[in-house]
């Protein structure tokens, strides 16, 4: 069973990643062709879950969780909130936007070309694995005393940074709720309709 597991790991990991990527590409094309914006919002949620799954398979567990929380949770709710203020069906474009497709394709190709210069995925000699990462991984538990490396990086090594970030996000959220939330609720109460 142990031997099986090693083999399963070496073959199955990349296979699952490829399957998830194929799902994501298919989903992206389908979303682009959709006119119903509500359906698109729902499918964006699924897209986030897929990319979170792919990130998990690539060992970026913390990024995956952020993706799931922000992508599938908050942004779906925000998009739906925006949909509540407009119509939920995209109007048909009058002419065929050839230039737009060209620009998108060119950007995609350039991004793909850019990845060629990057070190191979999981390369132990990549610059990112040579600099401070080993220090955090090996010494943070003795230095900080918290078993989770990400927690000690966020809350201690760059604690001031995180503190500032949290303050900014909290202030922004409070501001947004005060500016938008109250207004929407009041309007709804006054008109008394679900328009």
């Amino acid at each position: 069973m142990t031997g099986d597991r090693v083999m399963g790991e070496s073959i199955m990991g990349p296979t699952v990643e490829i399957v998830l990527f194929v799902f994501m590409i298919g989903l992206a094309f389908y979303i682009a062709s959709l006119r119903s914006l509500f359906a698109a919002a729902m499918l964006f949620g699924i897209f986030s879950l897929l990319s979170a799954g792919a990130l998990t398979m690539m060992d970026a567990v913390d990024v995956a969780f952020t993706e799931a929380a922000v992508g599938a949770g908050i942004s779906t709710v925000l998009i739906l909130g925006a949909l509540g203020l407009t119509t939920s069906v995209e109007t048909r474009p009058i002419h065929h936007r050839f230039t737009a497709k060209l620009v998108v394709t060119a950007t995609g190709l350039m991004l793909a070309y850019g990845t060629l210069d990057m070190p191979a995925y999981g390369d132990p000699d990549a610059p990112i694995n040579k600099h401070v990462a080993p220090h955090y991984l090996y010494d943070s538990e003795t230095e900080i005393g918290i078993p989770n490396v990400v927690t000690s990086v966020l809350a201690s090594y760059r604690g001031y940074d995180t503190y500032g970030e949290t303050t900014v996000v909290l202030t922004a959220a409070v501001g947004a709720i005060l500016l938008l939330g109250g207004g929407v609720a009041r309007r709804r109460r006054e008109t008394g309709s679900s328009e």
């Binding site: 119903s36 509500f38 359906a39 949770g73 779906t76 709710v77 739906l80 909130g81 949909l83 509540g84 119509t87 939920s88 069906v89 679900s194």
Partner: peptide, 15 residues
């Protein structure tokens, strides 16, 4: 959150 947030009447008929 989604179900609380969305007004399904409009959306269903739109679709």
């Amino acid at each position: 959150a989604l179900l609380r947030f969305s007004k399904f009447q409009n959306l269903a008929s739109d679709e």
